[in-house]
Write a protein that binds this DNA or RNA. Structure first.
Lengths: 237, 237, 237, 237
DNA sequence: GATGAATGAGGATTCATTCAT
DNA sequence: TATGAATGAATCCTCATTCAT
């Protein structure tokens, strides 16, 4: 944040210029084919480096090196380090939607809670294990009291997703409370994910079950009886 | 702890020895007094800087500056940056025990679950709000998949505490499972704490209640009926 | 050598490959040109600083300053201080071989001892006077009892050279003894060089003669009579 | 040299003041008994540290720590780091004279060359092995072209000693030449000593013999026949 | 677009030396 | 005297970012 100065403005200006004709909003800069490839290459490298070392410890030079390009090239596509994280977040989010998300929202609302948790969490866990950078980006900058940062599209989006799903299950809760519950769930999920990813094999599975139990027991008493009657079966013997 | 201030410890021991025989009070360790004050001052500064920026982004120079001393002075008392974190962890842990911990463990085992959660969490939350550095130190080095680091006396200690308390409530669970549950609880607490500290006033209170609800609902079904009969009353209406 | 400029080497290889097919001359590696020049510049600066102050007292910042570049630039080409010494050693060794070394070994074996000493030592002394850093690098890290260090390619190479030549003159000595004699000679040479370089003009010449006398008298009695019959003429009247 | 500033002047002034009454030259400051003990303690520590790490790498704090005193105490007796080396040099030189030197000069002049070398070198080598700091101090500051430094009382004294002995063996050489030969011998001895101290057991003995051979062969042809008739016997078979 | 050289402030740490007690 | 706290410049090295080609 403090470290990106004028370049940001420039980058923004460039975008504005490129998209100015259509009047469409800024995000997807028009880039030539070669540019797209480079960007993919760089985002892949960034994912590896962020995933391996975290955001702060990742150096832009390391990302460029991992991508096999020069630092200058990296900065031709990203105005600064944070922009890489932002774009990587977008990219992973898109990949996530493409991979599992098509029927994500719609279907789950009809499931009983325990099935919904399985249906929601399993692919998400899988995705995070396959893309540790996603986990990294879901966590804000980790400084307590400063939970959200600029590159938290991932954070914001995922939280919104949780909230949306949740709203379907808790139709009679006031929105503020739904938000609060969603926030809790999302944080429980994130930290649970850390534990899960820190283990392997059967231990990992056990922690996955444990996290589902936590969430199930937390949510179940809030859900009106008619909404998914069978949900109580598994986790509350 | 073991690596920091070995010289000081020696010096202290010598002083103690010298004054022990005569029973004379503080005088001859007056030398130490300034040092002791500096250490307190440095730890205070470190707490501020760690709390404000996190461990990694905190620079030793910034800590020294915050303490109003030169970098060299800092290194007269701490061999390196991590030692500062370790010592600060020890210090906060001690302060924590002194402030709330005297009757911490013993009393709580007899409480019903909801009272125990109040008795346990409220002071801990209060302490963390007053000492954000404690929160920072409770979190490991934040890189997912590398949950524990060296300066995690705080992490280790707190986790152990949770486990101990938990064992009292879950006498019939196998140890491995107790560990797993304790791990989950501790992580839920940490991430809940982040949310709590990111809010203020009534919102903060609401999140505190929410976190307690999560934990209560998670734990309650595991506790044998005879242990804390009334515990079900509050959070599961 | 192995640790420095790996990236550069890669880059060079890529360039070479790119231009190799077409047979086109230098153009596409123009990028490298600046870098190559900087490296030469930095090595020159390092030679000056090492030569003036010795390895330990030489600071990387001083070398960068002497080269007229920023510290960062230096570290773009060398991973650390020692690598500078290693590379400088390689460089000087190469220069030495290119300048005097072509016929170095082959020819000398046929010379009588005194001529061989002249032929061997004179250019070496000259080279050292012109490149004091070479002298610095020939000396290990100077702490007695720890004669060899890592950047001692120069040390090792020169000692090997002495040993090889010597073996030709002492065909009937066991290898271990040849090694020992070579070690003695090399150390005598190094310390003689210090004396020589500490003097100038006629005094310097006198010390050069003196060192040759020492070595001649030391070696001559060991050489079989048939090997260099006339060798006794000069220094042992 | 460059690092000691005003303190030197102060120290000098203090000395002058202390000895001003008697008008005697400066060196031996009047020190109380306790002071003498401290100085001995500090010099012992300095010898250990210099011997272990060399002059440059030795830190005054390390010396103080090794002596079990505070840095401030060290600076109460020595104005700066170099003064420690100077005083340690004096001290070792004195110890050397006391141990082996009583009859050092006088007796040796009558010996044949090879016996003289044994008589001279053996104790010196022994002393150096027992006091590596002596070796360290005998070497100047190691930067070629700057052979002598300030703390080289040891260097100067030992060189003078060599020269004196040598003069007895080479009565018909002009003084300048004797000086030159002495310089060569001393440097050969110093570098030979490094090799010797870098080895152990039989290898060390072999190097000792080798060094004596070098010196013997160097000197023997210069000595008038009547001076030490039997000297040729051993090393020139 | 791509390159890689260049920057320079900043990071952790050390050390000779001084000063208040 | 002795202490040990205090200093601050200097050390090696890193990194986000810029610039000339």
């Amino acid at each position: 944040m403090s470290q990106s100065r004028a370049a940001d403005a420039e980058g923004a200006a460039k975008d504005a210029g490129a998209t100015g004709k259509t009047g469409a909003p800024a995000k997807p800069r028009r880039r030539q084919a070669r540019g797209e490839a480079r960007i993919a290459q760089l985002l892949k490298a960034a994912a590896d480096v962020f995933g391996a070392t975290g955001y702060t410890a990742a150096s832009t030079n390391a990302i460029a090196r991992e991508a096999g390009v020069s630092p200058g090239t990296l900065y031709q596509f990203f105005p600064n380090k944070e922009a890489i994280a932002v774009e990587l977040g977008d990219h992973l989010l898109t990949r996530w939607r493409e991979t599992y998300g098509a029927a994500f929202l719609a279907d789950h609302l009809e499931l009983p809670l325990d099935r919904m948790l399985d249906a929601t969490l399993d692919p998400l866990i899988e995705f995070n294990c396959a893309n540790p950078a996603f986990t990294v980006l879901m966590h804000g900058s980790e400084i307590p009291g400063m939970v959200t940062k600029d590159h938290d599209a991932v954070h914001v989006t995922m939280l919104g997703r949780v909230e949306t799903i949740l709203a379907g299950y808790l139709p009679d809760k006031p929105p503020a409370e739904v938000t609060r519950i969603a926030t809790m769930i999302f944080h429980i999920f994130k930290s649970g994910l850390d534990v899960i990813m820190a283990h392997e094999g059967e231990e990992r599975e056990a922690y996955i079950r444990e996290m589902k139990t936590v969430l199930h027991r937390y949510l179940e008493p809030m859900i009106p009886d008619d909404t998914a009657a069978g949900s109580r079966s598994r986790h509350t013997p």
